[in-house]
Every structure is written in structure tokens, then in C-alpha cells.
């Protein structure tokens, strides 16, 4: 796809002819897409369309699925991440992920944040404290939890837990953050907070978000790709996709949902 609308942007993720199989099931077919740096790109489509599967290719979480096999190219900053020489661990540091269900570790709030940095070799207490504060502030959670950093993360509300997971991801300094339906388990108020947070984060990070909520995609993303049956049916400027879809199935999906 020659994406004219991206001409003036730096590309963070470039995917060429990606095919993915779960056993015999061809779950992703001929995916090609360019995702621009420091923008929010959302992936929409009915459940089972492959959008979550796709996002998990970008940080190679699909490696955990044993029957999964992949063909094609995924370039992150011009580096093919499925090349044999690539270090998956380094890749995942660079490409963070926030999951559908908030999944804080059964540790204190501060320990959740320092978990990654500590393992990656930061030992200095002050430095770790700084990271905790900085990450929590960036995730708009600092004001709510600064007085109970040593309390269990499991005592937080669902929305707070999800922001903690975002903070935890920020703490390892990623360049790209993948969100896999981050609000599907949250109430509307928590959802609004997370959406606001995502829009603020795009200044510093490239963001890819999978969502089944089209209003959400319309509200927060710059670009939108519509997935159906493992293919990208349409990809473009969010405004264009929602107001003036070029492909019939996109229009059906959007009007079906909005109407």
C-alpha cells in the first residue's frame, strides 16, 4: 500500500506481506502497513479479525504460542525483528505492551514499577525512586498513590491498576507502546482517564492501540486500520476512515456500529 497520507512522517514500524498461521489456520493474510512515529494508530474490526494477533507480532509475544508460524517482514526502525540475530529481550524493552486485563504483579506499587529497571541492571536507590515518581507522574497516577507506594498493587481499583501497568511499561523506557484493548475491562470514567493519558503519551511515544470501541478510536487516534478476516481492508487518516470510508465493508462496520 502506498500510503500517501504518511508521506511526511518518519515511520516507526513497517510491515511487509506478513502471514501468520496458528497450526493450519491462516490468521493473518498479507498484512502490509506503515505505522508513523509519535502518533496514535488504532486497529479496529470485529472480534476474531486478527487485530490482537497482529499487535502481538510487533513485540513477538506470539513466540509464546507454540503452534504459531510467521512469514514476511516486520521492521521496527528499519530492523527486521524476525531476523535470527535479533534479541527478543532488547526488542521487548523497546516495544512495550499494555494488556487487556490489568495485570499488576502481586507486589507493592513501587516494586511493580522498579521490577523492570532492576532486572535491567539499575541498582541505585535514588535512581529507582526517581523512576517510580517519573513513571507514575507520566501515567497520571502519582497524585493518587504517592502516599502508599509500599502498599499492594492489588488493592488499587481496576482503572488505577491499568495506569500502573502503563507506568510499569514506561519505566523501562520504551519507544513504542502497544495497547491491546486497554479499556475493555474498565468503567467509563477510568476509560476517559486512560484515553487522556494515551493522547498525552504520543508526544514521546509511538502508540498502537487495538480497540473494539470505535468512538475510542475516533477520539484518540490519528490513523486507523480496519481489519477483517485477517486482512487489512482499509487504512487511513482516522477522520477519513470514519467520515468517508472508501471500502464497502469498512462503511458497513462503522455504520453498523454507529447507527
Amino acid at each position: 500500500m502506498g500510503e500517501d497520507f504518511l508521506q511526511n512522517f518518519e515511520i516507526a514500524i513497517k510491515v511487509n506481506n506478513l502471514n501468520l498461521w496458528y497450526g493450519d489456520n491462516n490468521a493473518l493474510k498479507e498484512i502490509s502497513i506503515d505505522i508513523p512515529k509519535n502518533k496514535v494508530t488504532s486497529l479496529i474490526g470485529p472480534s476474531g479479525c486478527g487485530k490482537s494477533t497482529f499487535i502481538r507480532c510487533i513485540n513477538r509475544m506470539n513466540d509464546l504460542v507454540r503452534t504459531c508460524s510467521i512469514e514476511g517482514e516486520v521492521l521496527v526502525y528499519d530492523e527486521d525483528i524476525y531476523n535470527e540475530d535479533i534479541d527478543v529481550v532488547e526488542l521487548r524493552k523497546k516495544v512495550g505492551m499494555v494488556f487487556q486485563k490489568p495485570n499488576p504483579f502481586p507486589m507493592s506499587i513501587a516494586e511493580n514499577i522498579t521490577y523492570g529497571p532492576k532486572i535491567h541492571g539499575i541498582k541505585n536507590k535514588n535512581e529507582l525512586n526517581r523512576i517510580v515518581e517519573q513513571s507514575l507522574k507520566a501515567a497520571a497516577l502519582w497524585d493518587e498513590v504517592s502516599d502508599r507506594l509500599d502498599k499492594s498493587a492489588l488493592d488499587l481499583s481496576g482503572g488505577q491498576q491499568q495506569r500502573l501497568c502503563i507506568a510499569r511499561t514506561l519505566a523501562v523506557n520504551p519507544e513504542i507502546i502497544l495497547f491491546d484493548e486497554p479499556c475493555s475491562a474498565l468503567d467509563p470514567i477510568s476509560t476517559a482517564k486512560i484515553e487522556e493519558l494515551i493522547m498525552n503519551l504520543k508526544k514521546d511515544y509511538t502508540i498502537v492501540i487495538v480497540t473494539h470501541n470505535m468512538q475510542q478510536a475516533a477520539r484518540i487516534s490519528n490513523y486507523t486500520a480496519y481489519f477483517l478476516h485477517g486482512k487489512i481492508m482499509e487504512y487511513g487518516d482516522t477522520e477519513q476512515i470514519f467520515e468517508n470510508p472508501r471500502v464497502k465493508s469498512t462503511e458497513d462496520y462503522i455504520t453498523g456500529r454507529f447507527g
Binding site: 509475544m61 509464546l64 529481550v89 532488547e90 494488556f99 495485570n103 502481586p106 523492570g116 501497568c165
Partner: peptide, 13 residues
Amino acid sequence: PMEYRQASLALGV
């Protein structure tokens, strides 16, 4: 829970 492992691996651990 599997999620803990996933979250940790996704942090580049």
C-alpha cells in the same frame, strides 16, 4: 496467572 509471565516478558525480561 499466565498474565504475570506475559507482562514480565513484555517488559523485556
